[in-house]
Design a protein around this nucleic acid. Sequence first.
DNA 1: CCATATCGGGG
DNA 2: GTGTACGATATGG
Length: 834
Amino acid sequence: MAQLDFYPISVTYKVEKNAADTAPSAEMQPTIELYGRAIAENNQLRQACVKYEGFRPYFWVIPSQEAEEASQQLQQIKAENPELKVTGTEVHTKNYFGKEVKAVKVIVNIPAAVSQLREKAKEFGTVLEADIPFARRFMIDKRLMPVALYKTEFTPLTSAAAEEERKSKVPTYATQMLSQVSEEMHEPRILAIDIETHNPLGKTMLPEEHPILMAALCGEGFRKVLTWKKFPTQLDYIEFVNSEVELLERLKQHIEQYGPDILTGYFSDVFDLPYIRARAERYKIRLDIGLDGSQPRVEKTAANTTTDITGIVHIDVFKFIRKVMFSSLQTTVYDLSSVAKEILNQAKDDVDIDQLYMAWDNHHGEQLESYCAYNLQDAQLTLNLCRKLMPNIMELTRTIGLPMFDVSRMSYSQLVEWYLIRQAREFNELTPNRPSNQEESQRRMTSYTGGFVYEPTPGLYKDIVVFDFMSLYPTIISAHNVSPDTLNCSCCVNSIQNKVPGEESAWFCTKRRGFIPTVIDEVIKRRIRVKEILKAAGEDKTLNARQMALKTIANSMYGYFGFFGARWYNIECAKAITAFGRNHIQKVIEQAKNKGFRVIYGDTDSVFLALDGKTKEDVQGFVAEVNKSLPGMMELDYEGFYPSGIFVGTKGTGQGAKKKYALISEEGRIKIRGFETVRRNLSTIAKETQEKVLDIILRENNPEAAIEYAKGIVSDVRGRKTATAKMVITTQLQKEISSYESYGPHVAAAQRMKDQGIPAGPGSVIRYVVVTGSERIRDRVKLPEEVAEGEYDPEYYINNQIVPAVEKIFDVFGYDSAELAAEKTQKKLQAWFG
DNA sequence: CCATATCGGGG
DNA sequence: GTGTACGATATGG
C-alpha cells in the first residue's frame, strides 16, 4: 500500500462485473470513479483516476407495518430482471418532518435496481430518497468535497482492473479510503472551445449537412484556430489542416495534449459539443476525449440538453450565467457579446457572421482570416468568463458538495434543495419526495401577501435617517424557528411566542429547533466567520465567493418554501415569514413614532424617518431599544443619513408612490430609486435634465430654481440650440428586426443600420435621433451620423422625453408640467411684445 | 382577456 | 443512467 495525494474534481461511476470474480456468473457491482489531479513522484500534479468499490445504492421505506417484519419482507422483493436485486435491509431510527420514525434501508446491488425495486417497495409504505443519483449519493454520504486535498491509501490494481486501465488515458488507482487533509485547492486547468460552421441558412443549422469550418481552443499560454481552407496569413495561432476530418482529429489531439480539468464553451451544452460529436459520427471518427476513452455524451431531455465528458468537467458558461449570475447583471440579453461587455468589460469585434459561408465558398482569404480572429476571440472571451466566474462556481460547488458539472447548471431552487439534502443526512433527516405533477399544479395556484409598504406623503423632506433589517427573511426563519417540522406542533398550542401574526392558528415550536432553522443558523454563522476572516485578510476572491455562496443559500430559503417544485415546500412557512416581516417592520414604525420620530416611508425591511431636530444620541437610543426587543439574530441596522430627499406621487391618485424616491447623501451623492424614466431608454438631454432638477431640489432646496432650470432647457431645445449628440436615444435590440410585431422607432433605426450594411441583430445597440416632420415617429428616425445640428424635433424631445422625466417631481410642488411644455407660447408672446 | 406556444443561446 | 429548466413574451381562442 502506498500514499496518494489527490484532488478529486469530477465523480462518476461504472457498473461492471466484479473484477476479482472471473466466473461468467460474476455479480454486477458499481464502482465509483473519481477523476482529478494526483501528486506524482516528481511532485507534479497529473491527471488521475481513483476507483472506489463497495459503496452500494439504497433507498428508504417508512413501513406502514412493524419495521422488523417489513425489513424481512423487503429483503425478499424481486424485480422482473433477475440481475437487479436487494442485497440487504436494515432498520434505522430516522427523523421525518419532526417525527422520529423507524425506517428500513433497502440496499440494492446496482443503481438501476433502485428504479425497479422502489415500485415493489411502495406496497410496504412511503418510499424516500429513491431519486438521488448515485454519484451524488456517494458524495453526500462520504462527505466528499470537490477540489480539496485528499490523502488516500491505494492498493495495486488486480490484473483484470489493470486490463481496464489500458482503456483509461490516465493512471488509475484503487482505494478503500478517502480522508480530506486540507481545504487547499488545486487551481483547475481550463481550456475554452468554440467552433464556426458553414451557415448558408443563417440561424438554421444542420449538423448532418453543414461542416465545421473552424475550431478555436484557448487556454493558459495556448491558443489555436484550426481551419481547412488555406490562405496567406501572419497569424501564428492559425493551423491549417487538409479536411474537416483532419480538423476533428487535430482537435482531439490538442485537447488530449493540453489535458484540461475543465473544458468550457458558450452554449456548448447544446451547440459546440453536440455539433462536434455529430460531425465526428458522420465520419465514423471516435471522439474519445473522455479520460476513460469514452466520447462526449449528449443528454437530451424534454426541455434541457447537457453534454458530459468523463473525467473532464464540461462547463457551459452560458448556463451558469443565466441561472445564477443573472441576478447581479444588468443585461437581459445573454449573448456572448453582451455578457462579455458587462462582466469583463471587453467588447466583441463587429463581424457579420451571416457572410461566413460566402467567404468560405468563394475562398476569400482576407475575410477568412478575420473570421479566424473572431473565432479565437470567442474562445478567449469564454475562457476569460470562465476564469472570472471560477471562484464562484468552485465555492458554490464546495458549499453544496456535489460535482461541479451539476452545480454549474443548477438554478437557485436546486442549489438550496441539494444543500438541504446534504445537510439532511448530517442531521439524520429523511429527504421528502418531489411533488407529483398534480400536486405541482395545485401549488402553482396559491399566492399570498408580501412585504409591508408604508406609503409616503409626496414631498421634499430634510434630514432623513434610514434603517434596515440585516438579512430580514433568513433571520426571521432562525428567530421564529420557521420550518415545516415545527409548524403547529402539539407541544406549544397555547404559546404566543412564535404565533404567526395575523394568522388565526399558526405557530412554530418553541422547544425543539426545526431542520431548516438549524441549517440556516449554520449558514449565517459560517458566513459571519468568513466575513471576519475576509475583513482581517483583506480582498480575497475565494473568500468573497464563499461568503456570496452562503448568502445565496440563506437568501434563497424563503423563496424555496414557496416554490412549487420544492421537496420542502411549505406555503404556511412562506406566508409566516412575510407575516413576521410585516409585523416587525410595523413594530419598528410604532417604536419610532413613540420616540417622537416622524415616519416618512417604509418598505419590507427598511424605514425612513425624519430627524426633525433629534440628535445622534436619540437615533442610537432608538436603534438600541429596537434591537433589544428583537428575537434571535434579528438586527436593525443604521443604513445612513440623508440631508434631503424627495418622495413623489403616483400618476392617478396623487398618493405616495411605492419604491420611488431620490435622496442626497452627506457626501453629495444622489441616490435615485424607481423612477421608471431612469430605467427607460432616455436621451441624454432628458436624463441630464432629470438629474439636474433633482440636484437643484435636493442640494439647494430650491424647487423654483429647478423649475426655472427646466424651463431654460425646454427653451434651448425649442430654439434648436441643444447639441444633436444629447438627443441620441440608445436602446438594445432584443430580437431580429423581422420578428418585431410592433415596428417601433428603435426597430426602424435598426433597419436603417442594416440597409447601410451595419449589422443589427439581437443584442445590438441601436442609437437614433427623432427629426422634425409630420409623419409617424418611426418614419422620422435617423442614425446620429445622418443628423445635422438642429435637425432634431424639439416638440418630440420636450413632450416625450424631458417632461415625462421631470413631471412627477414637479407635481410634488404643485407645479403643472403642462406649463413647461407650453413654454412655447410664452416665449413667442414675450418675443412679440418684448 | 386568459390560455397556450415558443424562445432563449449557438452559426 | 436513482433526475432534469424556467421565465418572458408572443400568439391564439
